[in-house]
């Protein structure tokens, strides 16, 4: 598994396709912290939201990076379809962790936050970054080209879902009560933002973690479902 991750990581680095999303994110962080005020929780919530979009963009490119013939050879050598899928997700998570660390440490290193960082806020902010990054990876995994053949549908579908996951709440008053359960199908990105924006930064209650649990379940389901679709596609090859 470690070698597969290393291989995918090297393959991606050598492709230089990481440059647009990574550079965009780094520039975004730097510009964002240039302007004050920078309330700690709110700032980290914004950078996590940025990471959610960037990592989904990066992941969609990453899933399509390996040449299709080379993909067959990698599968033959690794002897496991599942291992390959997990290795790709782990590689992406590794990249996401790097970006998370940058967005977390940059304002600390240059003393750009308005309030001193507490352990509670720091831990929850890190967790938030990593979870939304995983959510972005999971969504990209669902819209990857091996599952969604058309480029337009793949990119368009992912963009639509990413945006909808944040703005759907504005439409809830217009939706009949009988079908409002459908909102649970949307990625829970907004709920995590909402709970952090309303947090005082000191008390730790269960209500604070509920959206995080919900996200974790959503992410796990999405990964499993994408894997199921990939396996199904394979039987059609």
């Amino acid at each position: 598994m470690a070698h597969l991750i290393y291989y995918y990581f090297t393959y991606y680095l050598r492709s230089y396709r990481y440059f647009p999303p990574v550079a965009t994110y780094l520039v975004f962080i730097i510009i964002f912290y240039t302007y004050r005020p920078n309330p700690t929780i709110d700032s980290y919530t914004v950078t996590a939201t940025g990471l959610y979009y960037i990592i989904a963009w990066l992941s969609l490119g990453f899933f399509a990076i390996e040449d299709s013939i080379q993909h067959q050879l990698t599968l033959i050598h690794s002897k496991s379809y599942l291992q390959n899928y997990i290795a790709k997700i782990m590689t992406l998570f590794l990249i996401a962790t790097g970006l998370t660390l940058f967005s977390f440490l940059y304002p600390i290193a240059f003393n750009l936050l308005d309030e001193p960082l507490t352990i509670k806020v720091g831990t929850l902010s890190l967790l938030h970054h990593l979870l939304v990054a995983l959510l972005g990876i999971a969504l990209a995994s669902f819209f990857q080209r091996d599952i969604v053949k058309s480029v337009i549908t793949s990119i368009g579908g992912l963009t639509l879902v990413l945006v909808a996951s944040h703005v759907y709440i504005a439409f809830t008053p217009f939706i009949p009560k009988q079908i409002d359960f459908l909102f649970y199908l949307f990625p829970p990105a907004y709920k995590m933002v909402e709970v952090l924006m309303n947090w005082n930064g000191t008390t730790l209650e269960l209500a604070l973690f509920l959206p995080f649990f919900q996200s974790a379940i959503y992410i796990a389901f999405l990964f499993l479902f994408s894997y199921f679709l990939l396996k199904r596609k394979r039987s059609l090859l």
Partner: peptide, 28 residues
């Protein structure tokens, strides 16, 4: 154990032969 030689090996791999074979061997 199987080995597979595909029709049309990828032309744009940015590895040296040694790097590439090390990757495939380690994955194996």
């Amino acid at each position: 154990e199987m080995g597979f030689v595909p029709e049309g090996f990828p032309r744009h791999l940015r590895f040296t032969p040694v790097e590439y074979l090390l990757h495939m061997g380690k994955i194996h």
